[in-house]
Design a protein around this nucleic acid. Structure first.
Lengths: 217, 217
DNA sequence: GAGTGGTCTAGACCACTGT
DNA sequence: CAGTGGTCTAGACCACTCC
């Protein structure tokens, strides 16, 4: 890393092979290997068998985002977490989910609208659709007591997912929730999760106006 | 991972120690160690010396965001990348950078305003401040030919940074650039980078309306 | 086909931290 | 202060892929 930062090894340059570095630094090759793999994971190096290891052409590093678990995020700020269920009903898949739920029947999807609070201030407004096909137990869950977020974490096996962040403006309903003007800019996250290839839940979270999504590079 | 997904090991549970797993699976402890470290890196496990390894209470996995290199992102979509310098001048630090540049004198900061284009459509509007204290060569650079982004990548040692995403609304100027209405919601990224503890550059990028920042979980 | 990185092993010592 | 994970070593074999 020092040699890359000092530009001794320029972007695109081929660096010595593992065995040479091991000899130069007087360490075992396994140690060199772990170091180089670690740098490759952050995007500083590109490695290919037989072709060797090169300094990345665009050594922008990868950023890691810890997906915010709402309760933890709020409590980490020293604020009191609150949760309020606004609506829970069976529903059809939302148009914006864009085919996520495939042809799952109307009665098989639960629609939960809820609000996460920090010290009684609205923090995140959440629209969530849960498939009872993938998660049969969800049909009997009472999301008034436990947030759907936490219920799913505690009852559903780990799944894969995709998340997208977009900017939106507060609709009149959202503006009322956050006590802001209609048209205020708000950050939204749309998240889809699957388990075993089956759609589990689609969530659209609207963060309070002024929210900053921060991460390290 | 299978045992966590099948809920054999529940969230919060203490799992066997490395040496036991090594015996169970008939592999070396170093192999178990690498596997567990890998799962810990994705957020599925939490490990502490002496305390052992536990399944994470909220096993939401970490999302990795590849910071978009603008040219690559656009070309990956099969669109032609374009760059236009709108303004370049020495300037003082912007108020929004919030003390990032410390007490660096007014004449020591270059302010570059530029536009990244995809097939001649405005894609990202960029306001960038570069410290010539950290990067003396920047004073002579001509950002009309090369984007500041690429110039920095090719001339500045790798640095650390922070990035924040916020939602904003298009100002009249921004709206003109993107040919959208004033007040349209736009996603913005504010990025600070340091080298050797010294501030290097502060960038505020405004993405075109409708931009989605996507990542995998 | 040869050379590179990928991965594993068996063993060792160390650092941290909970009891 | 004992037990856990963290890290290193020396050696080996394998998989891939470029020439």
């Amino acid at each position: 890393m020092r040699k890359i930062q000092n530009r001794e090894w320029l972007p695109g340059a081929l660096i010595p092979k593992e065995s040479e570095l091991a000899a130069q630094y007087g360490v075992a090759r396994a140690t060199v290997n772990r170091a180089l793999q670690s740098l490759a994971a952050t995007g500083l190096l590109e490695r290919r068998r037989r072709a060797g290891t090169r300094v990345a052409q665009h050594p922008a590093r990868h950023a890691q985002l810890r997906i915010p678990i709402v309760r933890q995020e709020i409590e980490a700020q020293g604020r009191a977490y609150g949760y309020r269920l606004l609506r829970q009903q069976t529903d059809s898949a939302p148009g914006e989910a864009d085919g996520f739920f495939g042809d799952i029947a109307k009665g098989k999807i639960i629609h939960v609208v809820a609000l996460h609070l920090a010290d009684n201030d609205a923090y995140i407004f959440e629209d969530r659709w849960i498939s009872t096909v993938a998660i049969a137990a969800a049909a009997e869950a009472d999301f008034a007591k436990v947030s759907a977020n936490e219920w799913l974490v505690n009852n559903v096996p780990i799944s894969t997912g995709k998340i997208a962040f977009v900017a939106d403006i507060a609709s009149p309903d959202i503006a009322k929730v956050f006590a802001c003007k209609t048209g205020s800019p708000v950050l939204c996250a749309a998240r889809k999760t699957w388990h075993d290839g089956a759609p589990v839940t689609y969530v659209r979270q609207t963060f309070h106006p002024g929210y900053r999504l921060e991460m390290d590079i």
